[in-house]
């Protein structure tokens, strides 16, 4: 069905992209509008004659937004590095080694990815509270394992299976031990797959909401999603600042997506498409 695209098709594409991007564009416009133009008649004009960076300055000066960004970065990075490492061993074993109960284990991993977070939160909360780990980085890294580890195993298994087994066999014949084969033969080939997995796991950890909301309630340890969501005050909502903060978190994301789009797509679709 590879057909050439006509001009109508491109018009459709433009409309489609516009629909998807419209909210972001509107946030971008709103973020540079002066406060008075966010309300009343001027709220609906798609431009401003008097652009200002006041909202951006306020986000960083009046709110601990940098702190939120830092917290999110620390938690997501540590979670990603350690889960992908632990998962890579398990995924290698499941994809490559013969032992009993593999299918059952993979089934368990898949079913854990389907666990609703709310069903694990009360014991995890009480556990972390008793250990004094609420309001700490570890307090988020531990519960984030619930969804990042099964996700990583699931993705990595598909990637490992795609690596041709000839090389491994050659290494075995040459007398390499299992660990040598893993580190010297498999790992270099698996790096792209692991990188893709890491991107997806990082995004999942960066976006997590429920655990972050309940476990780290102190301002000092809030992550970006919670921080932005809590911008809403009791009586007024600072829309200018919210718009600016949204732009601040979206821009790096857009860059990342543009750079890594192929990888992300291959990761997203690898578990679901049979080739």
């Amino acid at each position: 069905m590879k057909k050439k695209a006509g001009p109508l098709f491109y018009i459709f594409l433009v409309v489609f992209v516009f629909f998807i991007m419209f909210p972001f564009l509107w946030m971008l416009i709103s973020s540079v509008k002066p406060l008075t133009e966010l309300f009343g008649d001027k709220a609906f004009t798609p431009y401003t004659s008097d652009p200002t960076l006041k909202s951006y300055i306020s986000v960083f000066v009046d709110y601990p937004f940098l702190r939120y960004l830092w917290n999110s970065a620390v938690v997501s990075t540590i979670t990603t590095v350690y889960t992908v490492l632990v998962a890579s061993f398990a995924a290698y074993a499941i994809a490559r080694l013969n032992f009993r109960g593999k299918t059952v284990i993979l089934g368990l991993v898949l079913s854990v990815t389907m666990f609703p977070q709310i069903a694990t939160i009360s014991p995890i909360y009480i556990f972390l509270k008793n250990l004094g780990l609420t309001n700490s980085y570890l307090g988020l890294i531990i519960p984030y394992t619930t969804f990042t580890l099964p996700l990583s195993i699931w993705l990595l298994v598909t990637f490992f299976r795609k690596i041709p087994s000839d090389l491994e066999e050659a290494a075995k014949i040459d007398g390499a031990t299992l660990m040598q084969t893993y580190w010297k033969v498999i790992m270099p080939l698996a790096v792209p797959g692991m990188f893709t997995t890491a991107i997806l796991v990082f995004i999942a950890a960066w976006n997590e909401f429920l655990f972050a909301l309940t476990i780290n309630t102190e301002e000092k340890y809030k992550t970006v999603p919670i921080g932005i969501a809590m911008f809403q005050g009791q009586f007024t909502i600072p829309w200018g600042e919210i718009a600016a903060a949204t732009v601040v978190v979206t821009v790096p994301l857009v860059i990342m997506v543009l750079v890594f789009q192929r990888r992300i797509v291959s990761g997203l679709t690898s578990g679901s498409v049979k080739e």
């Binding site: 992209v17 998807i20 991007m21 909210p23 972001f24 946030m27 995004i203 960066w206 976006n207 909401f209 970006v224 999603p225 919670i226 932005i228 969501a229 911008f231 809403q232 919210i242 903060a245 949204t246 978190v249 979206t250 994301l253 857009v254 990342m256 997506v257 543009l258 789009q261 992300i264 797509v265």
Partner: peptide, 17 residues
């Protein structure tokens, strides 16, 4: 890329938007 952006942004942020 434009397809991926709404998916990748934190749900809380898009909800607020």
């Amino acid at each position: 890329a434009s397809i991926l952006i709404p998916w990748a942004i934190p749900t809380a942020v898009s909800a607020l938007m």
